[in-house]
Amino acid sequence: MVKPFHKFKQGGNYILLDINNGGVHAVDGQIYHALDRDDFAASPEYAELIDAGIFDSEDDYAEYADMNVNAPLKAMCLHVSHDCNLKCGYCFAESIIEHTVMSPETAKKAIDFLIRGSAGREHLEADFFGGEPLLAWETVTQTVEYAKAQGAKHGKKFRFTITTNGLLLDDEKTAYINEEMSNVVLSLDGRREVNDRLRKCKNGKGSYDIILPKFRELVDSRKKTGFTDYFIRGTFTGYNLDFADDVLAIANEGFRYISIEPVTVSTELPFAIKKEHIPRIKSEYDRLSDIMSDNNGGWSFFHFCADLEHGPCILKRLRGCGAGNEYIAVTPDGNIFPCHRYAGIDEWKMGNINIEASPVNKTIKEYFSKTHIYAKEKCRECWARFYCGGGCNAEFFIFEGDANKPSEVFCELMKKRTECAIALAVRKALG
């Protein structure tokens, strides 16, 4: 019998997840340990759970997997710059840095392409990305104004986001971002010495002291506008496996919304995350979870925010993201790729928005639309499948050569973060 549950102990609680219906329960030690037995289904403790209405669902969601195949476009990542004013040691975009920026004309064609491909969808999203998008500021502002005008004409509502290293932020750009961008992602790795070890300026000096005051100004002034969402987004590497201290360092600088992600680079690099790091990183997530449970500072860690009562809809839970299907990336020369991580990989080029007759490669679109949890052998019986959605296709392609083959590091860390998120919600609920 395939176990319909996942159980773990954290924060002093015995936690039981009913995989197929999303139920989360705190049980006593006797029930918890009875479920370890090979014949757990014959135990009185299991019968008690059944009587309580737990485990009343099968995994019968596969019918929803095909409802989002060849979906209309919803979101676009605009690589407005393939140039950067930092030289970060781990940057995955380094291989596509060509010192080019997207022209406003190409960006406007991309917006037209998104509107045309969105069919009946009303809500569309454009993300300004790079390289460093502030190096193409004229393109950013012209694109926002154009998208708003075209959106009004075609009955579409645009939501704009931007990711920046902050180096070029000034009063004018900060005000515009806070006025127009629903969310802004600000890149910072945590403690000064950690940030400056890999996030260096072109002159080899660290960037921390330049960008921190600019980020603080942006976030402080953002409170006065209609948009409040932002993320301080960092990367941890093999150099700082004590990254909970980096989350704390960011929180202590007064920032509320924090995300720090494991680096994804070749394992040949000295700061790569490797399989042997998994136990150490898991214990660090535990430490961060303990810090969070005592956290009265009003800050949050992205991966530990689980909405157990609502959460994403079933269509979203079956996929890690919409890349290549309802989400695409466009590079400065107008080439279309499944997402920003695939940008520049010629075999995954889906078309070009400058060529009127260039159709989107439907074979690629269909391929990505079918990379759901039922297509990935490793995901089908994984307890975390409805929280993870099958993970990041680009990461699996880069490390395993196949979008449908999740990597061990990704899976182990994803499952640990999910446990921490659930455990924190349980702790909060039980008081």
């Binding site: 009913d18 197929n20 219906n21 999303g22 139920g23 989360v24 329960h25 705190a26 049980v27 006593d28 006797q30 029930i31 008690e48 759970l49 309580a52 209405g53 737990i54 669902s57 969601y61 929803y64 909405d307 157990l308 009562e309 609502h310 959460g311 994403p312 809809c313 079933i314 979203k316 839970r317 996929r319 890690g320 993201c321 409805f386 959605g389 919600a425 349980v426 909060k428 609920a429 039980l430």
Partner: peptide, 23 residues
Amino acid sequence: MKTTEKTTRIKTICGSSLRDSVS
């Protein structure tokens, strides 16, 4: 979040968010 005590040994933190819905 409101918890429900199914029995003295089982406290439900959330019931069936996945069913209800039917990164």
